[in-house]
């Protein structure tokens, strides 16, 4: 195996007494699509934030292509990790093109002086940035909307724009936080194609998602995070077959499943509670609970 693009070793994140992420190891190889799933509150997004420098992990290290990442979001992006957000965070009052141009911030150098003096170098760099940004917009299929405000795009296109903006920083690894949340099946399918196309560009992808069909179609490997700990990691088949994963999502059947007898008992109790519903406040409270 070649050197992994991303290697998280024993990452632990504590907020006071709460351990949100506990000693998680994860590697993403080059050209790989890795999925990260888990029930709500499992610590997936916290783990993401540890990877991107938004949080500084309490313990553990994150290395990108062999170098330890600095704990500053902008330096992480500079190093080559780009991300999208669970709740879309576009620059709402900027145009589509400008959003992508902001994404190119780390790959351009022009400072205040060159902006004020407007030498030939500045113009060349601006032109080049715009050409690159337009390429990316064409890649996600938004080039015809370059002058629209980001806030006015439909939901699915906002997701696409966020991906294009992340790609503009020329990353080696793209982190997608629930890229298909709120999408219909067609849009989800299109997103799948888009992620494959990104992988074909040689960019490794780490994706958090709740849509299992999407995840299992897409990913080479899937890691399951439950209550801050990594439960299983493996190919789709391995994860799907693992009983602990099913238990984590659906719960385990507890001892002595309710039989007919108990069901009848519950029904009787409910009928009894319904009858004097408005006689006392106590019973009303009981009803509402």
């Amino acid at each position: 195996m070649t050197t992994p693009v991303l290697e998280a070793r024993a990452v632990t994140m504590r907020f006071g007494g709460l351990t949100a992420v506990h000693s998680v190891d994860l590697t993403v190889g080059s050209g790989e699509i890795v999925g990260l799933i888990g029930p709500n509150g499992a610590g997936k997004t916290t783990f993401f934030n540890c990877l991107t420098g938004l949080y500084i992990p309490t313990e553990g290290t994150v290395t990108y292509q062999g170098t330890v990442l600095p704990p500053k979001p902008h330096l992480v992006t500079q190093a080559g990790i780009a991300r999208t957000f669970q709740n879309i965070r576009l620059f709402a009052n900027m145009t589509v093109l400008e959003n992508v141009l902001v994404g190119r911030h780390t790959r351009t150098k022009e400072g205040l002086w060159s902006a004020l003096l407007r030498g030939p170098g500045f113009k060349k760099a601006e032109k080049e940035s715009e050409a690159r940004a337009m390429d990316l917009l064409a890649f996600v299929g938004l080039d015809h909307k370059r002058d629209h405000l980001a806030r006015n795009l439909p939901y699915g296109e906002q997701r696409k724009l966020e991906i294009a903006r992340a790609l503009a920083s020329e990353p080696g690894l793209l982190l997608l936080d629930e890229p298909t949340a709120g999408m219909n099946p067609q849009e989800t399918r299109a997103t799948e194609e888009l992620v494959f196309a990104i992988r074909d560009k040689g960019i490794a992808v780490l994706v958090i998602e709740h849509d299992m069909r999407f995840i299992f179609n897409l990913c080479d490997r899937v890691a399951v995070l439950v209550q801050g700990e990594k439960l299983v990691e493996g190919t789709s088949d391995v994860v799907q077959a693992d009983e602990r994963v099913i238990a984590a999502y659906l719960g385990t059947p507890f001892e002595g499943e309710p039989g007919e007898e108990e069901a009848a008992e519950v029904a009787a109790a409910e009928a009894a509670a319904d009858a004097p519903a408005d006689s006392t406040t106590g019973s009303t409270e009981g009803d509402s609970q």
């Binding site: 979001p73 902008h74 620059f91 709402a92 900027m94 911030h105 601006e126």
Partner: peptide, 21 residues
């Protein structure tokens, strides 16, 4: 310019702006 766009990006959403480098 690049710097002006980054100012506006900060105004719009500072977390997203830092995540963009």
């Amino acid at each position: 310019s690049r710097i002006g766009r980054s100012w506006i990006a900060i105004r719009e959403d500072e977390t997203a702006a830092t995540a963009m480098g």
